Simulated scan of single mutants.
Amino acid sequence: MMRVLAMLLAALAVFAAPAMAQQAMPPAPYAYTQIEDPALEAEARDLMLTLRCLKCQSQSIADSDAPMAGDMRHQVRTRLLAGQEPEEIRAWLVDRYGDYVSYSPKVSETTWPLFAIPVLLLLFVGGVLLRRLGRRRSDEGEAA
């Protein structure tokens, strides 16, 4: 019985340690602190509103309270202070986290299905509707 209890405690420690470690880290300096230059902070805010929080997935990094969003805000502000352009920062984040991080993905070899499939689906539905309407009109013409 004691052996089983010891194994359970060991398993609990293994699984609980990573969760406890995440909470112990302080937030990045620019995660919740704005840049002193209002124009630069406005640029940072505009960029942050176009980037998706990877943890929340329904919020921009500007609106999310997730620690990962705070780290991404820190990266945006730090890189702007270092002189990078917003598009350079966006490209770096997309390279690091993938196309999903951007609310306005670019058409590329990995994202083209996102743009093509809705168009193909609309053409298919339009074709089916035109075919049904054509049959209905021909059936009404024969009945008269």
Rank of each mutant, 00 (worst) to 15 (best):
residue 1 M to Q: 11
residue 2 M to Y: 11
residue 2 M to R: 12
residue 6 A to L: 14
residue 7 M to I: 08
residue 8 L to C: 07
residue 8 L to R: 05
residue 10 A to N: 08
residue 11 A to L: 15
residue 11 A to V: 13
residue 12 L to K: 04
residue 12 L to C: 07
residue 12 L to R: 00
residue 13 A to Q: 11
residue 14 V to Y: 06
residue 16 A to L: 15
residue 17 A to V: 10
residue 17 A to Q: 11
residue 17 A to G: 10
residue 18 P to M: 05
residue 19 A to H: 04
residue 19 A to T: 01
residue 19 A to R: 03
residue 20 M to E: 13
residue 20 M to V: 12
residue 21 A to D: 01
residue 23 Q to Y: 08
residue 26 P to C: 04
residue 26 P to I: 10
residue 26 P to T: 08
residue 27 P to C: 04
residue 28 A to H: 05
residue 28 A to V: 10
residue 28 A to M: 10
residue 29 P to F: 01
residue 29 P to G: 01
residue 31 A to V: 05
residue 31 A to G: 12
residue 32 Y to S: 14
residue 32 Y to A: 02
residue 34 Q to Y: 05
residue 34 Q to S: 15
residue 35 I to T: 01
residue 36 E to C: 08
residue 37 D to Q: 11
residue 38 P to N: 02
residue 41 E to Q: 07
residue 41 E to H: 00
residue 42 A to R: 07
residue 43 E to T: 14
residue 43 E to Y: 04
residue 45 R to E: 06
residue 47 L to A: 03
residue 47 L to V: 03
residue 49 L to Y: 01
residue 50 T to C: 07
residue 51 L to Y: 02
residue 52 R to P: 03
residue 55 K to I: 09
residue 55 K to A: 11
residue 55 K to V: 11
residue 55 K to W: 00
residue 56 C to A: 10
residue 57 Q to N: 02
residue 57 Q to H: 03
residue 58 S to K: 06
residue 58 S to T: 15
residue 60 S to Q: 00
residue 62 A to P: 01
residue 64 S to I: 00
residue 65 D to P: 04
residue 67 P to D: 02
residue 68 M to D: 12
residue 70 G to M: 00
residue 71 D to K: 02
residue 71 D to Y: 01
residue 73 R to Y: 10
residue 74 H to T: 08
residue 75 Q to F: 15
residue 76 V to L: 11
residue 77 R to A: 00
residue 78 T to M: 07
residue 78 T to P: 00
residue 79 R to G: 06
residue 79 R to K: 09
residue 80 L to D: 03
residue 81 L to N: 11
residue 81 L to G: 14
residue 82 A to H: 12
residue 82 A to P: 11
residue 83 G to S: 02
residue 83 G to D: 09
residue 84 Q to Y: 14
residue 85 E to G: 14
residue 86 P to A: 00
residue 87 E to L: 11
residue 88 E to G: 09
residue 91 A to T: 14
residue 91 A to E: 09
residue 91 A to N: 14
residue 91 A to C: 06
residue 91 A to G: 05
residue 93 L to W: 02
residue 95 D to P: 07
residue 101 V to S: 02
residue 102 S to A: 01
residue 104 S to C: 03
residue 104 S to I: 06
residue 107 V to E: 12
residue 107 V to T: 13
residue 107 V to S: 10
residue 109 E to K: 14
residue 110 T to H: 13
residue 110 T to D: 15
residue 111 T to C: 14
residue 112 W to P: 08
residue 113 P to G: 05
residue 115 F to W: 13
residue 116 A to W: 00
residue 117 I to A: 12
residue 117 I to P: 11
residue 118 P to H: 01
residue 119 V to I: 15
residue 120 L to K: 06
residue 120 L to E: 05
residue 120 L to I: 13
residue 120 L to T: 06
residue 122 L to I: 14
residue 124 F to I: 13
residue 124 F to L: 13
residue 125 V to P: 07
residue 125 V to N: 04
residue 125 V to K: 06
residue 125 V to H: 02
residue 126 G to Q: 09
residue 127 G to W: 05
residue 127 G to C: 01
residue 129 L to C: 05
residue 129 L to N: 03
residue 130 L to S: 15
residue 130 L to R: 12
residue 133 L to S: 00
residue 133 L to I: 15
residue 136 R to V: 10
residue 136 R to W: 15
residue 136 R to M: 09
residue 137 R to G: 04
residue 138 S to F: 07
residue 138 S to W: 12
residue 138 S to H: 08
residue 138 S to Q: 13
residue 139 D to E: 15
residue 140 E to A: 14
residue 141 G to I: 10
residue 141 G to L: 07
residue 142 E to Q: 12
residue 142 E to Y: 13
residue 144 A to K: 10
residue 144 A to P: 11
